[in-house]
């Protein structure tokens, strides 16, 4: 399953619920036009600050949308997150038991919010590898495959990884693959 990528670069101060609703509605409209699986990528690199209300309207509500999306899957990846973005986003997600996949402004993977430790460890490994099947992942994590399945189901249900047959793909890899398709000269390992 290769999702269509919908990119949004944000530049303004993300403060007030009103602003958050406007940003989210635009993204939802963008996604509503995609009649297949879609990956929304929100770049916050140029956002000077985000408050708690806006984090709830943009981040938490988009994560809820991705978890509930039917019939087409929706995934969300937040990029360019600076240290000062983290507390409002973490708070908005944790308050509702949600989790989001993200990348810091230094390109490090970030799993923000609430997630059971085994699922979190699996997510990090999938991100590091890009794509992996359950047996290889179990070996890497020194776990029994059957113990990992529940965690992987959870990650898939929360739209934190993409399942393509027996393979689990990180949202970062899905984004790289989409970029490679847009620029065919780039080889991916």
């Amino acid at each position: 399953m290769r999702p269509t990528v919908a990119r949004t670069e944000l530049y303004s101060y993300l403060v007030t619920r009103h602003t958050g609703r406007t940003v989210r509605t635009n993204i939802e409209e963008q996604l509503a036009r995609v009649e297949r699986a879609a990956l929304a990528v929100l770049d916050l690199r140029h956002v000077p600050l985000i408050d708690f209300s806006c984090a709830d309207e943009v981040v938490a509500k988009l994560v809820v949308l991705s978890v509930d999306a039917r019939p087409h899957r929706r995934f969300v990846l937040f990029r360019g997150l600076a240290e000062h973005h983290l507390e409002p986003i973490e708070s908005a997600l944790t308050r509702q038991g949600l989790a989001a996949a993200a990348e810091s402004d230094r390109g490090e993977p970030l799993l923000i919010g609430s997630l059971e430790p085994r699922a979190a460890a699996a997510w990090r490994e999938i991100w590091a590898l890009g794509h992996v099947d359950v047996d290889a992942l179990a070996e890497r994590l020194d776990e029994r495959a059957e113990h990992l399945l529940e965690a992987l189901d959870d990650l898939e249900a929360r739209a934190l990884v993409i399942r393509d047959g027996d393979i689990y793909v990180s949202l970062g890899r899905a984004l790289d693959d989409a970029a490679a398709e847009e620029e065919p000269g780039i080889d991916r390992p």
Binding site: V15, T16, R17, L49, I50, D51, F52, S53, E83, H84
Partner: peptide
């Protein structure tokens, strides 16, 4: 970074009015 945290606090307390 306190400048950012202060701005966030200001935003939230003003939004309370709205």
């Amino acid at each position: 970074p306190a400048v950012i945290h202060f701005s966030v606090m200001l935003s939230e307390v003003c939004q309370n009015i709205l």
